[in-house]
């Protein structure tokens, strides 16, 4: 038998424990072990951002993190973005602005955009474009994605007390 490591982690606020091989990535653990298939694989070498998740508050490509490395960490994936009260403003804006076509890059863009707005509530268009440059989209030409992120920032501003 191949060596298995026991990993305890907090995924979308839930304490989770799983066994993995050292060579398995966080992306594989999420998809194949935890069945959280919302995080997508586009390239498996850190060049498309489809597997973006937030690890300890920081945006990362989950294909470039070993599952073993998330021992004791917090992981946020697209499945945790909507709360019991409804969609995150980013999700709502992506729908309203038609910021997705095929939708395979959407989870990655949502997590990347969330990481941005968590840190900078009022980014400029240029800032959004720079921040999202690690996320490829082949369908939209980015226009509507950038607009959706800016729109969500506005929505969140209005909602802020």
């Amino acid at each position: 038998m191949l060596e298995r490591l026991r990993v305890q982690t907090l995924v979308n606020g839930e304490e989770i424990e799983f066994l993995c091989e050292p060579r398995q990535s966080l992306l594989e653990a999420l998809r194949d072990i935890l069945k959280l298939t919302g995080t997508k694989e586009g390239c498996n070498d850190g060049n498309c951002g489809a597997c973006s998740v937030i690890l300890n508050g920081r945006l990362v490509d989950s294909c470039l993190v070993l599952a073993a490395e998330v021992q004791g960490a917090t992981v946020e994936t697209v499945e945790g973005l909507a709360g019991p009260t409804g969609l995150h403003p980013l999700q709502q804006s992506f729908l309203e602005q038609a910021a997705l076509q095929c939708g395979i890059c959407t989870p990655g863009f949502l997590m990347a955009a969330k990481a941005l707005l968590d840190r900078e509530p009022h980014p400029s268009e240029a800032r959004v474009r720079l921040w999202l440059a690690g996320n490829l989209c082949r369908c939209t030409g980015y226009d509507k994605i950038v607009r959706a992120v800016l729109d969500a920032a506005d929505k969140m501003e209005v909602a802020r007390p």
Partner: peptide
């Protein structure tokens, strides 16, 4: 170095 995700690691 890379994009935002890469700079995070």
């Amino acid at each position: 170095v890379g994009g935002t995700q890469i700079q995070g690691r």
